[in-house]
Amino acid sequence: MFETFSSDLKGSVQRAREKAAASGAPTLEAEHLLLSLSEFPSGPAGRVMQRLGLSESRVQGALDQEFEAALLRVGVTLPPLADLPPRRRERTPRLGQSAKASLMRTQKEAIARGERRINNEHLLIGLARTRAGTMPGLLRVLGLTPEQITLEVVKEVRRG
């Protein structure tokens, strides 16, 4: 799967892996890939993230809200938690299910557009269209839809 990834996209996956490790997450998930794009990498994906105001702190804040909402739906109020340092894990996080789903969608996006090189802009669309994990709830908190993000990316790519 990785042989057609551009070096920019490989860089995004690598930064996502580092973010997952730093937060003590056992696996690299879709939200870590989005956090990686929230550093505004050069190219259309970074520009769309910037235009939508999806900075790292905004995405992180929305993730916290999504977590709280997911608990509240089943009647659990988030208790006050101590600000503990994250768990140190021996191995670097492997790809989790939601990240795998996102990367499959990313690949499909590029193929559907007849592009051989899979890039960050395809990843952004792939993430927006991921139905597993935190992404749907996260977009709801951010007030965005998959269609809206896709449209923004397509416009930005055309603009060049």
Binding site: F67, A70, L71, R73, V74, V76, R131, G133, P136, G137
Partner: peptide
């Protein structure tokens, strides 16, 4: 999708 996400959030 929301219900299953809540299960994962409870585990976290």
């Amino acid at each position: 999708g929301e219900a299953l996400r809540s299960v994962v959030a409870l585990r976290q």
